[in-house]
Simulated assay, not measured.
Amino acid sequence: MCDSIAEGKEREAQLGKAQILIEQNQSDYKKLEQKFLSVESESHKLSKRQEELMSQVKELNKEKESLEDSKKSLEAKNKDLEVRLRQKQLREAQAKKQQQIQQEKVKQQSVKVTPRIKTESKPKQIEQKRVETKVVEKKEVAPVPKTESVQPQPAEVSNTVPKAESNSTDGWRKITVVATGYSLYGDATGSDGTPQTATGTMPSAGRTIAVDPSVIPYGSQIKIPSLGGGIYVAEDTGGAINGNRIDIYMSHGDVARQFGRQTIEIYVKQ
């Protein structure tokens, strides 16, 4: 009996310990379960945040595409405005050129009238002097007439002989000008249109120059030593091209900007 009682008490003690272990394991399990639920909740939050960020990225991409389309549209409008501005400047330059041509015609007519009056008056005076000297010769009957001392003709001949200009060489007239560059192509894509020059030609790099036609007539051949001495043609003009100013047509706006504004010497075919 005593042995069975002792064994029963020992089993009860073992059961108590097992119960305590079970309770501790249950407590640990609950803690682990809470941590799992917390981690799962954080995972759901991160997934939602990731979805929100992806949505924002898509919206930003759409805005970027819209901005690129707007940029292309603005660039196209800018090119169109540049072409229209150039055409307007050409029209204004043509109108100004016509006015200058009319003014030059009036000046040339007025200049032509005055020299004729002067040239007509000089021969009369010379003829009168010659007649007077002849009459004196007949009256005095001098053996050796000294009429040669009065010689108005040499003075007139010396005035009519043109002086050699220091700025002309072999049929080319040297002019000091302020030179700039221009182009109808402002970027790599080029212009939407290329208007004609003031003389009706299409501008070409290495040939076309805009000038003031009252200084350099249209069609004149021009050499520019600083650009290699090639032959250019005066076939365009512009609203700002007045006096000793030229505008050299170049292949691209970047080339014109690099050329800038220079004071150079050019030679115009006479």
Rank of each mutant, 00 (worst) to 15 (best):
residue 1 M to N: 02
residue 3 D to A: 04
residue 9 K to L: 07
residue 12 E to G: 07
residue 20 I to R: 00
residue 21 L to E: 15
residue 23 E to Q: 02
residue 26 Q to S: 08
residue 27 S to G: 00
residue 28 D to Y: 15
residue 32 L to I: 03
residue 38 S to D: 10
residue 39 V to R: 14
residue 42 E to R: 10
residue 43 S to L: 13
residue 48 K to M: 07
residue 52 E to M: 14
residue 57 V to H: 14
residue 60 L to R: 06
residue 61 N to Y: 00
residue 62 K to W: 00
residue 72 K to Q: 13
residue 75 E to W: 05
residue 85 L to R: 10
residue 86 R to K: 11
residue 93 A to W: 13
residue 99 Q to R: 13
residue 101 I to N: 06
residue 106 V to R: 12
residue 108 Q to W: 08
residue 110 S to D: 00
residue 113 V to K: 09
residue 119 T to W: 08
residue 123 P to I: 13
residue 123 P to R: 12
residue 125 Q to Y: 04
residue 130 R to S: 01
residue 131 V to T: 00
residue 134 K to Y: 05
residue 136 V to F: 04
residue 137 E to P: 00
residue 142 A to G: 05
residue 143 P to W: 12
residue 144 V to F: 12
residue 146 K to H: 05
residue 148 E to G: 07
residue 151 Q to F: 05
residue 155 A to Y: 14
residue 159 N to Q: 15
residue 159 N to K: 15
residue 162 P to C: 02
residue 163 K to W: 01
residue 164 A to R: 07
residue 166 S to N: 09
residue 168 S to P: 06
residue 169 T to I: 14
residue 172 W to N: 05
residue 173 R to T: 15
residue 175 I to M: 11
residue 176 T to S: 05
residue 178 V to W: 03
residue 181 G to N: 09
residue 183 S to V: 09
residue 186 G to A: 15
residue 188 A to H: 15
residue 189 T to F: 08
residue 192 D to V: 08
residue 200 G to T: 01
residue 204 S to A: 15
residue 204 S to H: 13
residue 206 G to A: 07
residue 208 T to A: 00
residue 208 T to N: 02
residue 214 S to Q: 09
residue 220 S to C: 03
residue 225 P to M: 12
residue 225 P to F: 12
residue 233 V to F: 12
residue 233 V to A: 10
residue 238 G to T: 02
residue 242 N to C: 01
residue 248 I to E: 08
residue 249 Y to F: 13
residue 249 Y to P: 02
residue 249 Y to V: 05
residue 253 G to Q: 13
residue 256 A to W: 03
residue 258 Q to D: 08
residue 258 Q to L: 10
residue 261 R to W: 11
residue 263 T to V: 14
residue 265 E to H: 15
residue 269 K to Y: 10
residue 270 Q to M: 13
